[in-house]
Nucleic acid binder design. Structure first.
Lengths: 190, 190
DNA sequence: TTTAACCGGTGACATTCGTCACAAAATCAG
DNA sequence: CTGATTTTGTGACGAATGTCACCGGTTAAA
């Protein structure tokens, strides 16, 4: 819980009482590699704070896996559309390696938020960070070529390159695995 | 202010007192076509509720305009990254036609939110909707071809096609104007 | 009315990318 | 250590896209 406390403190002032109330909504949970945090078709009623390990979000489009996000330590993973609206999730969340999370239960979280506005503010800030991350990555696709997207990740998010296989990365970059190989080769030889 | 009231009511329960407090943070503002709501390099300290007309967000990449979003009546337009973090905006917001907005001033909004948790909750829900829209559109680029992206807009967001020129739309879809022409022709002839 | 500006379409051509097939290298399990 | 599996690289080829040039139709301004 220690990492989580630091994470919260970095977002908003938080009293002892708020922390005690919040803990009523929290559960530690471990996932094995390839275990699902959220499956397509389920309603997402949790926020997953990542304590150790990482997971990814992906769509299964006619049997083809399309990675759309990676979530590492000290981040929140969730389906914000499903969590907010109660609709079924269109994508999956799956552990990429042994994963330790702290789950925020939606219902209990809302109950706790009624008791203190600090929890409401925390929620707003979590969503804000989540939205900022969304915007950052969607920008890549709207503005840049595959090669430029790779270069952006290399400078701004090297942790992804270090921990994710090239096939996984290619899917995330929105190109075929072969295209990513060629981009890398072009740069080696020039 | 009537449209805004309905918008708020659709998001969260709102007392008379909350509405009166919120109004302290609100200002009506008109923009002429091609007038800027937010310029690249500025810090965004407003949420723009769109009452009438529409605007767009775009990046200027080495002199090339890349449209990234359109915002119509009954939506909030802003730069969520800049608004939340205080960093400078990397993109522009500009009126595409005569535009009537109601501006939420960030500083005054935070003051009002301290008085009542209903405003805090409203803020959380506005951000949530904004994040959901981000995710919806970024999904298009990660999963679909240009033609599929067009088809998605035609079925899910026909208002965009009705009000935006093909050149603007092509930029938003992330393809050259000519490519959009060819997609349209392919479908006519097949 | 005339002229200019804008909008949408299209042809030509080079480039890039996806797909399929296969091979080399790295990793893992027994 | 060894064989199997996974990961990565690459060649061939067709399809899709970007770029440039130009045209006709519409709209708006002079």
């Amino acid at each position: 819980m220690n990492n989580l406390l630091k994470y919260i403190d970095s977002l908003t002032p938080f009293s002892e009482r708020s922390w005690e109330l919040l803990q009523l909504a929290l559960t530690k949970q471990e996932f094995k590699k390839n275990e699902f945090l959220l499956k397509e078709g389920q309603v997402c009623d949790s926020l997953f704070y990542i304590d150790k390990g990482f997971c990814k979000s992906y769509y299964d489009i006619d049997g083809v896996v399309k990675n759309t996000g990676f979530f590492f330590e000290n981040e929140i993973a969730t389906n914000i559309i499903s969590f907010g609206s109660g609709e079924r999730s269109e994508f999956n969340l799956v552990a990429c390696e042994q994963l330790s999370t702290i789950i925020f239960d939606k219902e209990k979280l809302f109950l706790a938020a009624k008791e203190t506005p600090e929890i409401e503010t925390l929620g707003r800030n979590c969503i804000r960070l989540f939205a900022a991350k969304q915007e950052e990555f969607s920008k890549l696709f709207k503005l840049y070529s595959a090669q430029q997207r790779l270069e952006y990740l290399e400078t701004k998010h090297p942790e992804i390159l270090q921990r994710v296989s090239l096939a996984q990365l290619a899917s995330f970059l929105g190109v075929a695995r072969e295209t990513l190989s060629r981009i890398r080769r072009r740069r080696r030889t020039s």
